[in-house]
Amino acid sequence: MQLSGPQLSHEDMQRAAEVIGQVKTALAAKIVSQNTLQQSLLIGLIASGHVLLESVPGLAKTTAAKTLAQSLDARFQRIQCTPDLLPSDITGGQIWDQKAGEFKVSLGPVHANIVLLDEINRSSAKTQSAMLEAMEERQTTIGGNVYALPNPFLVLATQNPIDQEGTYQLSEAQMDRFMLKDVLTYPTIDEEEEVIARVASGVIDAPSNGAAVDLNRILWLQSVFKRVFIDRSIVKYTTYIAAATRTPRNVLDPKLADLIQYGASPRATIALCRAACAHALINGRPYAVPDDVKAVATRVLRHRIVLKYQASAEGITPEFLVDGILHRVPTP
């Protein structure tokens, strides 16, 4: 994204629309509905932001991640998180080579283009923290040496909200590393019928016929994203939204405001701007508008607002509060 400079040309927008359309088609072939999920994956891919997916089991989280990787001809790694998982199981470590008489570095599964951390909250806090450097710095440190991660690099993490036995709640610092948090819902009856039809026809389990998009085109798309224009007034709008989560009494009813313990960090404001620009590009515009911010605000902020215990007791959710803030912060 950029605050000034020449806008994207018509040719660049056409080419970007073609690449985005190919990825959309590949995702839609195996994912029934779940339009928000597909859009979140695209936003994360374009804006180089990680995505946290929350839902009950069986709503295509793993399928979505694998389909995205296959559509890009990208290296995909799935890490099943368990309480006994060690940091080295993710990042890699040094292994003694008896023949050579020396330690050799074995890179872990995080060294991939798309990494799925399945049920991330089942791994211990120590193991969860091993992902912080990878997600933020896009590198790992093994034996004092730094190893860069491949480009593009996208982390998709899942967690199950209904089964909390043997889980470790993600820390605020870890949650803040995810650009978006998407909460998946059950499909409609018609959508579920279509899922069964595709499973019966073998579409879901069928191997990919080849990548729809070369990785170089994705890297080009990410460079185009950096040139999406966002006006200063839109940037100020995002700062007002983020500030409203920190000083909610200025915007919300005092009873609702008192339910917020901590608001969103400046990283959330950056994520709002980046996600809005990616949303604009997906919708064929070389510039962001307030509606782009509103479209992504809940996904950017829901996991960054820490509520007090009373909020849970009263059935108040972060989504409800974000919606209230969006209705009360003036739109430019």
Rank of each mutant, 00 (worst) to 15 (best):
L3R: 15
P6M: 05
H10W: 01
V19F: 04
V19L: 09
A26Y: 02
I31D: 04
V32Q: 07
Q34Y: 05
I46H: 01
L52C: 05
G58D: 03
A60K: 03
T62G: 10
T67S: 14
A69C: 11
A69N: 10
R78M: 04
D84G: 06
I90G: 03
G93A: 14
Q98I: 09
V105K: 08
S106A: 15
H111L: 01
H111F: 07
L116A: 06
L117S: 06
N121Y: 01
S129R: 02
E133S: 11
T140F: 03
P150K: 02
V155Y: 06
L156S: 06
L156K: 03
Q159V: 07
Q164P: 00
T167N: 09
D176Y: 08
D176N: 07
D182G: 02
E191D: 12
E191Q: 13
E192V: 00
V199I: 14
A206Q: 13
P207K: 14
N216D: 13
L221S: 09
D231G: 08
S233C: 08
R246W: 05
N250Y: 05
D253F: 07
P254H: 06
K255W: 04
D258V: 05
L259R: 05
Y262F: 15
G263R: 02
G263C: 09
A268E: 02
L272P: 00
A276G: 07
I282T: 08
V293G: 08
V296I: 14
T298P: 00
A311N: 08
A313Y: 04
L321G: 07
P330I: 11
